[in-house]
Design a protein around this nucleic acid. Structure first.
Lengths: 233, 233
DNA sequence: AAATGTCAAGAGCGGTGCTCTCGTTTTGCT
DNA sequence: AGCAAAACGAGAGCACCGCTCTTGACATTT
């Protein structure tokens, strides 16, 4: 009985997986706006209403794809970091930056779903915030480890963050224990600029002006590494 | 006859303006995805097919709204700059940064249309690139004027950009004549971080971590001002 | 006065998300 | 083993969408 119940649930899980895979393919080719439950159902050989047995709405399907996307980009960042020598902090930072950009270029529509405009009136169920922070954990670890190795020498060009930001910086510091306020604030700048630059490239803001995007990205992330105080020797 | 012909064209222009205004209101309240030609027609007391006399497709309507949006944010940036003393370069930079953020917070859906994911498979007719650069002209002028006033002292923390970026940096330099390569590259960083930070705030990436967005934004833009070498005395 | 061009209206096509109902099958419990 | 309950696929249908085409009224031009 337990086996049979598991059988039913196994085919259900398999169908959910299959629906999600097809949906991800459609997302990759037609974009989030072009993702249609009916088209997915058609490709599954099902009638459209049957899909609702597995995903109660289109938004729930999109949420599942968002979670998958965050996990995919997080995994890419983790792997890029893991492939570097532990003590090469600057190399780890640059490698993870390129991992983000390469993933975005390879999955533009999925990247847009994650970091572009929130599709409808905006959602973000609790389920998404966990996977969404996988990549930030990596950045935080790199900076924190560099700091504790005595290899972080941020140039004294930024003012101290105001006291009102203490709580927020404490929250960010959970990703990089021990790092001083000033550097945490710089890390936020590096983080937003990394994604800001990838988004600008992907969403067409560089069109007509900047052609060598890879080189500009490399150079910019190197500047940010200097701003963070990562070692260059 | 000429008068009557002008009358006919004037009512046509007025109708186009009215359609665009209603569409902008719908965009502001329901977002780009929720903008429906039929709903606009309904509010105009027209039948839906009549709208096509004035906008050949929904995409053309969106393009018009995009152009309007770029002009609106460009005008906001220009006004913020004009309200500052000419020689207060740092103040001008910070004022324009806040102008972008404030406009984005006041018009989130329009901002998302401009700087979020490109709606369908992506467009960007030639008509949009002119208005789209209005704000960058202002940033460029601030940096260029500061440079020529001898008030730009960028801290020597960034490497020289590679030679392959020369042409791209030349293109950007048209906005800030005379500024050296290294600083042009920093300006691109400042530009991408400005919009990256606004987008992150607006699209929910700060949710659950950063609460004092205005203060963080102010501090970050101040750091970028230091990175650019804008004066602080 | 006739001809030309512009316009709003209506019907219609194919598509969407989603709901409800109806038989069938599978499952879990007695 | 038998039975009630749950899960399921299919189908019809609703309200909406972008867009096209035709028709008839009106205005402008010749």
């Amino acid at each position: 009985m337990n086996a049979s119940r598991t059988a039913r649930e196994r085919v259900r899980a398999e169908l959910i997986r299959e629906i999600t895979d097809i949906a991800r393919r459609h997302l990759a080719t037609h974009g989030a706006a072009g993702l249609s439950l009916r088209a997915v159902a058609r490709e599954m050989g099902m009638v459209s209403s049957a899909i609702y047995r597995y995903y109660p709405s289109r938004d729930d399907l999109l949420t599942a794809l968002i979670i998958d996307g965050y996990n995919a980009i997080g995994e890419a960042v983790e792997k890029a970091d893991a492939a570097c020598p532990r003590e090469n902090f600057t190399g780890r930072w640059l490698a993870t930056c390129h991992a983000v950009r390469n993933w975005a270029l390879a999955h533009p529509h999925e990247y847009a779903l994650l970091y572009g405009s929130p599709v409808p009136g905006y959602r973000a169920p609790q389920d998404t915030i966990g996977p969404a922070t996988r990549d930030t954990i990596v950045y935080g670890r790199i900076i924190s480890e560099a700091h504790h190795a005595g290899r972080l020498s941020p140039p004294p060009i930024c003012p101290q963050p105001p006291a009102i930001l203490s709580a927020d910086l404490d929250a960010v510091r959970e990703l990089m224990p021990g790092v001083p306020d000033d550097v945490v604030a710089r890390a936020v700048i590096a983080w937003t600029d990394l994604f800001g630059m990838v988004s600008f490239e992907l969403f067409g803001q560089f069109n007509g002006t900047i052609e060598h995007r890879a080189e500009l990205f490399e150079h910019s992330m190197t500047c940010l590494a200097h701003l963070l105080g990562l070692p260059f020797d």
